[in-house]
Design a protein around this nucleic acid. Structure first.
Length: 946
RNA sequence: GGGCGACUAGCUCAGUUGGUUAGAGCACGCGCCUGAUAAGCGCGAGGUCAGUGGUUCGAAUCCACUGUCGCCCA
């Protein structure tokens, strides 16, 4: 007869096939319908608040894999903290202002852009940002991220803009804000200042020229008495009209080199280590060096500008190196950061004869250059140099050069009037470094060093931009004398206006409404015009703590965590730290967590020109792969560093997912007929393997918890995967199948397993829940018949105790033995001698005290009643017999050493008869067809012959 | 060019403060089971821990240099 019907085979509604693409939206719809986020918040009201402050993505275009990783990590964090019992709100935000959106809008307007008012452009920008905000929000929700999606923050709302102005007003009041002429990166195409973050470095080919600056005759005595030239090297000939000095390193040796030239002998002054390079560049064939002198002795020499009627000094500068060029550095204070600093120190003129569009102004000093675009000026400048015999050499040079992130054109350095936040006012820089060291935790730890280095090296923060789409800088200029007014009162006046009417008011209202009543200029004037510059978007997002970390959003200052890509060390982390420190005196975050970026499976960064990662576009994830699989995939690698991605690399995660899912399915299936409250078996009465597995689960839960606490979610996933693979699927579940299927339903053997399975299921679903958000919710629902209610995401984190490891180490030893047996059985299987382990008889002898003890005394103590049966169950064999070596040396025949020191084993086909129901070979099974073991005999239907 | 990281099996990664024979998953090879079945299980092969030099009784692990890659900057 078929005994299958007399077994308790697994049964559950939890399907093997995930069908994530179809099922995830259904689960999300239920979360929405039941207002899961809102109800959790209400439930956690008054609990310890955990604030993760969302860094706002830019509301421009579809989301990509980078957004996915970032939002998933945030979601895991929020869900984990929530399960720990914290009140962990998540308020998503969007960065809405800025150049990319404005340029996109302007591009769409085409020729009409010129005739479109600023306010109209702003309106179009707002619509554009709103549209993408919605698109992105839909995608983020589809990723299963839990949050206050109905009430996000957006940097273009009046409340947010007012917050930016609050921060600015405080900075003005405390004296951090200054206005000045500075050379900054400038895009002549976009006609705007660019932040460091808006630059992209690309290789370009530039002219590479050596230019001779003649030493004025009264200085020749210091350089050998003969006419000589200081030779500089530059890749930007167009900046030569703005040259105001030549810098040398005071401690570097300089050589006077005499060499042959095209028409006459030349005497050139260059750094000694660079003489050979110089001679090669000018093509000299022989030379002498009559004089070497330190740079310090050159300082103060006066030089003739190569084509302008002016003299420029030789000055000292530390940054001059002997690595390239000539060691004599062309210095144009209006066109370079180092040059500017040098110029300020030496009192040089800050010349910048270039207008916003990149065209030379009349100040350039050469009639023929006026009106020429600097990108087309290199040839004319070279012409001037040639005419005057000042061009020593000219070639081309390939190097990395900054480009505008939006229009991709090369940028220039140009001196302009800008607004700055001083980084050194009231020791802000030093305080920021100290805060980095003492008040902020960094995950991974090297984030501290990174931000530290950036803070120490950074210049003052240029916060102004000459564009339309942003928060206006509230300042006015006197119409009579031109002086600027930007007081705390004026800023706060504007702040109130913006809070009520939005930032557009600044551009559309009458000037009288923008300034406090009765404002007078020092010159007596009372007529003003408004500043039209707007804030750097980094200043806006860096002020988010002011308007977002507030009660209005259910948040508070400071945030527990900022969690972003590690490009935000320089970006948002820094731009948030500085204003908060200046205004509030404290960092806005307690911990900064960073993740890495994606590279393709060849180790190269993903670039849009190569098609980005289309095979893993969010649409593909949503419609073909499933979010949970991708969430799992993202938790397999080390997301703190570079994350390699490709469709091919996701494959293993799909397999892993199926394994996890099926293990859940098996756990759930084994629970059929179990009523937790009534059928639950006390720990003390649990069978040995069941008691062991729950203890192991406790250890696992503690490890997983530590991993979550440390933001090492990939570690949590790895621990869980290993446990489900090795400890459950390959070991524990294998050994308990017999009791689960064949033991008397409702008996202790059966209920003991079910007690373990029930706890395994509920705990594992919880431990996975922050990562596999949908699958765990589905599994949680499948536990409904066993009294489980609600959402797993509203459930609380499992308790776990017991540090007693004796049972664990005991079982470890048994597993070693099990492995050794399997190793020996393998050849028997391949030869067809045995099928499963249930056909195997094992004889063993052990020379190792500890192991022998574990297999005998410990087994008796930990298994209880029938230790032999217990060992057979754990080891998965039909017979496990210790040979009586001392009294019967012949019994050692056939025993072989194993990988485990001291353990000797012999395996063979068991000669015992097999129980037809449970397939175990046992001594008591009688001969004949349909023979059953003693345990199974009661399942024989009445009237059936044995 | 500078700062910060990374480099371990064909691929993706573990490897807690230096300490037995460097682990796992995928892929690969050989099998088992058919009572988790569009599942499950076992065994096996595969590594000069990027390279070179150093510290140490002992280095994948600490130090220096070199190479390749990434991020940030110049």
């Amino acid at each position: 007869m078929s005994w299958k019907e007399t077994l308790n085979l697994p049964a559950t509604d939890f399907p093997m096939k995930a069908d994530l693409v179809r099922r995830e939206p259904v689960i999300q719809a239920r979360w929405d319908a039941e207002d899961l986020y809102g109800s959790i918040r209400r439930e956690r009201a008054g609990a310890r608040r955990f604030v993760l402050h969302d860094g706002p993505p830019y509301a421009n275009g579809d989301i990509h894999l980078g957004h996915v990783l970032n939002k998933v990590l945030k979601d895991i964090t929020v869900r984990y903290r929530t399960m720990r019992g914290d009140d962990a709100p998540y308020v998503p935000g969007w960065d809405c202002h800025g150049l990319p959106i404005e340029l996109e809008v302007v591009k769409q307007l085409g020729a009409a852009a010129k005739d479109t008012s600023k306010v109209e452009i702003r309106r179009l920008c707002r619509e554009y940002a709103e549209r993408w905000l919605d698109v992105q929000r839909t995608s983020f929700r589809r990723l299963g991220c839990l949050g206050d999606w109905g009430r996000p923050y957006a940097t273009m709302t009046p409340a947010y803009e007012a917050g930016v102005l609050d921060v600015f007003a405080d900075l003005v009041e405390k004296g951090y804000v200054l206005r000045g002429l500075r050379p900054i990166h400038w895009c002549v195409q976009c006609r705007t200042a660019l932040a460091e973050a808006e630059l992209e470095y690309e290789d370009v080919e530039s002219p590479s020229i050596h230019v001779r600056f003649a030493v004025r005759s009264d200085g020749l005595a210091r350089v050998g008495g003969e006419p000589a030239d200081v030779v500089i090297w530059t890749t930007t000939p167009w900046t030569l009209p703005a040259n105001r000095a030549v810098a040398v390193h005071p401690e570097l040796p300089y050589a006077v080199v005499v060499h042959d030239g095209p028409d006459r002998e030349q005497r050139a002054i260059v750094a000694l280590p660079l003489v050979a390079a110089y001679l090669a560049a000018v093509g000299a064939t022989d030379h002498t060096v009559p004089l070497v002198l330190p740079g310090a002795e050159l300082v103060g020499l006066r030089l003739h500008h190569p084509f302008l009627d002016r003299e420029v000094p030789v000055v000292a500068a530390d940054y001059v190196s002997a690595d390239d060029g000539t060691g004599c550095v062309h210095t144009a204070p209006g066109h370079g950061a180092d040059d500017f600093e040098t110029g300020r120190r030496e009192g040089l003129e800050l010349a910048c004869p270039v207008d916003a569009g990149g065209v030379y102004t009349a100040d350039v000093g050469v009639e023929s250059l006026v009106g020429v675009h600097v990108f087309k000026a290199n040839e004319p400048v070279l012409g001037l140099l040639r005419e005057r015999g000042r061009l020593a050499a000219s070639t081309r040079f390939r190097h990395s050069y900054p480009h505008c992130w939006r229009c991709k054109r090369p940028v220039i350095f140009r001196a302009t009037d800008q607004w700055f936040v001083s980084v050194d006012h009231e020791d802000l820089r030093a305080r920021a470094v100290a805060a980095c060291d003492d008040d902020v935790a960094w995950v991974p730890a090297w984030g501290r060093l990174r931000l530290r280095g950036m803070l120490l090296g950074r210049p003052d923060w240029c916060i102004s931009r000459q564009r339309a789409w942003g928060v206006p800088i509230p300042a006015v200029y006197c119409e009579d004398c031109g002086s600027v007014h930007c007081t705390p009162e004026l800023v706060r006046h504007a702040r109130d206006l913006v809070a009520r009417h939005g930032a557009d008011a600044w551009f559309e209202r009458d000037i009288a409404e923008l300034v406090p009543a009765g404002l007078r200029c020092g010159c007596g004037g009372a007529r003003f015009r408004r500043e039209t510059d707007i804030f750097d978007v980094w200043f806006e997002s860096g002020s988010s703590w002011r308007s977002v970390l507030t009660d209005a959003h259910g948040l508070q200052f400071p945030a527990d965590v900022y969690l972003e890509g590690h490009d935000q060390h320089r970006g948002w982390f820094q731009s948030s730290l500085l204003p908060a420190l200046a205004v509030r005196g404290a960092p806005p975050f307690r911990t900064c967590v960073t993740h890495g970026f994606f590279i393709d499976d060849r180790g190269e960064k993903l670039s849009k020109s190569k098609g980005g990662m289309k095979e893993l576009a969010p649409q593909v994830i949503f419609e073909q792969i499933g979010v949970d699989i991708v969430r799992l995939f993202l938790m397999t690698g080390n997301y703190f560093g570079d994350v390699p991605v490709s469709r091919r690399l996701v494959k293993p995660a799909e397999d892993q997912y199926r394994k996890i899912r099926n293990t859940f399915r098996f756990l759930l299936g084994g629970l059929a007929g179990f009523a937790p409250r009534e059928d639950h078996v006390d720990v003390a009465h649990l069978r040995a393997p069941d008691r062991w597995v729950l203890q192991t689960l406790d250890v696992l839960a503690a490890d997983v918890e530590r991993a979550y606490e440390a933001f090492e979610y990939q570690r949590a996933a790895a621990l869980l995967r290993d446990f489900m693979d090795h400890d459950l699927s390959a070991f524990y579940l294998d050994i308990v199948k017999d009791r689960l299927y064949c033991a008397k339903p409702g008996g202790v053997d059966h209920r003991s397993v079910q007690t373990a399975l029930f706890r395994l299921a509920t705990v594992l679903v919880k431990l996975w829940a922050p990562i596999l958000v949908h699958t765990c919710e589905e599994a949680w629902s499948a536990l409904a018949p066993f009294g489980i209610e609600g959402s797993v995401h509203a459930a609380t984190w499992p308790h776990h105790g017991s540090d007693d490891r004796t049972r664990l180490t005991w079982m470890e030893q048994l597993r070693e033995v099990r492995t050794e047996i399997q190793r020996l059985v393998d050849p028997l299987r391949k030869s067809g001698e045995v099928g499963s382990g249930q056909d195997v008889a094992v004889r063993w002898n052990c020379l190792d005290e500890t192991l022998a003890h574990a297999l005998s005394v410990d087994a008796a103590a930990l298994i209880g009643d029938d230790a032999d049966e217990g060992l057979r169950e754990i080891l998965g064999v039909a017979e496990f017999v210790r040979v009586n070596a001392p009294e019967d040396p012949a019994a050692l025949e056939g025993l072989a050493p194993t990988g485990r020191e001291g353990l000797q084993l012999a395996v063979a086909r068991s000669q015992l008869r097999r129980c037809e129901r449970c397939w175990r070979r046992r001594a008591e099974v009688p001969e004949g067809a349909d023979a059953l073991c003693a345990r199974c005999e009661p399942f024989r239907p009445h009237g059936t012959a044995s």
